[in-house]
Each structure stands twice: as structure tokens, then as C-alpha cells.
Amino acid sequence: MIFTIAGKELKALFASPLAWLVLTFLQLILAFGFLKRLDDFMQIQPQLIQMANPPGITELVAAPVFATTAIVLLFAVPLLAMRLIAEERRNQTMVLLISAPLSMTEIVLGKFAGLMVFLLLIIGITTLMPLSLLLGGSLDFGLLLSLVIGAALLAACFAAVGLYASCLTAQPLAAAMIAFSLLLGMLLAGETAADGLRGRDLQVPAALAQVLSPLKNFEPFAKGVLDSYSIACMLLLVAVFLILTIRRLDAARLRG
């Protein structure tokens, strides 16, 4: 049943020009960044060869490409997620889902899954660019895998926040603004709080503050480190916002 709703959301995404625009612009930005990085790499390659333990092409080219994707996701996900619930409420189509024999959890997870499939597609095309380097060289697949997992978790965090923002209002654009402000606020607050608290040697509060900042949690992945604490932080963030969304929608039925 979750798949049915996910399929419906995907169809709706691709029926709107927004999804195609996001994919197009993302591809343009990524291609530009990728080629620039590749060019730089070619120029410094002679110096790299002289180094004892030189950074590889994956670290110098693939990692920055994924960093760009992370930033693009920060802007794109609120826009892609805004319609999920807000538009259904504005068009009064939510009734179809609520009247159907579905639990609120299934509805929310279905919508989340639909958006995630699209975001994984974005990550997929991001991955294709470094993979194209296989034509003329070899890659560090460990680092690449770590980047893909990190980007997927990052996208999941953004999507969960975007979905929650979308259930707060019946205006899609307002939902996008809420999601964006929420994300930016969380990133800044999480980052500064984590650094500040760690500076004062308050390790536990610092570790908790880190939950708020998905970008901070993405950092180890960019270095090829599968940090279980970062993974846990991101999964926790996703779970919290999905539960908030479910509760919010259930409450709407009580409140009317």
C-alpha cells in the first residue's frame, strides 16, 4: 500500500515541471563543477605523482560533486516536498486517502517513500558522473559507496523535514519556506551548538546537538568514514519528523 502511494507521488512529481527543472539544473551545476574539478585535477596531476601518498581522483573529484549535490538538495527538497500534503489539503484531495482503508502511518510513509525514490534518482545521476571516469582510470569504490550512503541519508533528513513542513499549512509555497527556514535554522543551530559545547568540553550535549545538523553528520561520509553515530543521528532525525507528521495529521482529524 505504501508503494501505491509512493507511485502516485512520483507520478505527480513527474507530471509537474518542477521535477524536470530540478533535474535539469542539478545536472547543469553538477556537470560544470565536475568538469572544473576534473580540469584542476589534470593540471595538478604531475605534482600529485611526486607525493608519497597522493589523494586519488575519487577524493578530489567525486567528493566535491557530492558536496554540491548536498547543497542543491538543501534548496531543492523543500520545493519538491512542499506539495506532498499542502497541495492535497488545498485541493481537498486528502479525503481520498483518509477515506481509504489506510492508516495515517501508511499515508505518510508512502509519501516519504515517493519523494525518496526521486531523491535517490538525483543521487543516482550524481554518481554516474564519477563513474564515467572508469573509462580512463580506476575509482575508490569504498569512498564512492560511503558518499552515496551519506547523500541518501542526508536526502532522507531533508525529505522528512520537508514533509513535516508540508503538513503544517495548506499553501505549498509557505510549506517550502517553512521547510527551508527549519532546515537552515537546524543546520546553523546544530553546528554552532555542537562546536560551542564541544569547546567547553561538554561532550554529551555536543553529541546531542549534532543530531540537528544533517550536514555535520554528512562530513564523515565525505571522508569515506561510515560513522555509526552520524548514521544514528540522521535516522533519528528522519524518525522524529515522520512521527511528528503522522501525529499532526491524526490531530487534524480530531480538531477538524
Binding site: 502516485k8 507520478k11 505527480a12 507530471a15 509537474s16 485541493n91 481537498q92 484531495t93 486528502m94 479525503v95 481520498l96 477515506s99
Partner: peptide, 12 residues
């Protein structure tokens, strides 16, 4: 259930 405003997805 058919609500007052039919819950239709116009893009389908």
C-alpha cells in the same frame, strides 16, 4: 465516499 468537492487528481 464522495465529498462535497470531489477529491480528484487533475493530472491523472
Amino acid at each position: 465516499y464522495l465529498p462535497e468537492h470531489p477529491p480528484l487528481y487533475r493530472e491523472l
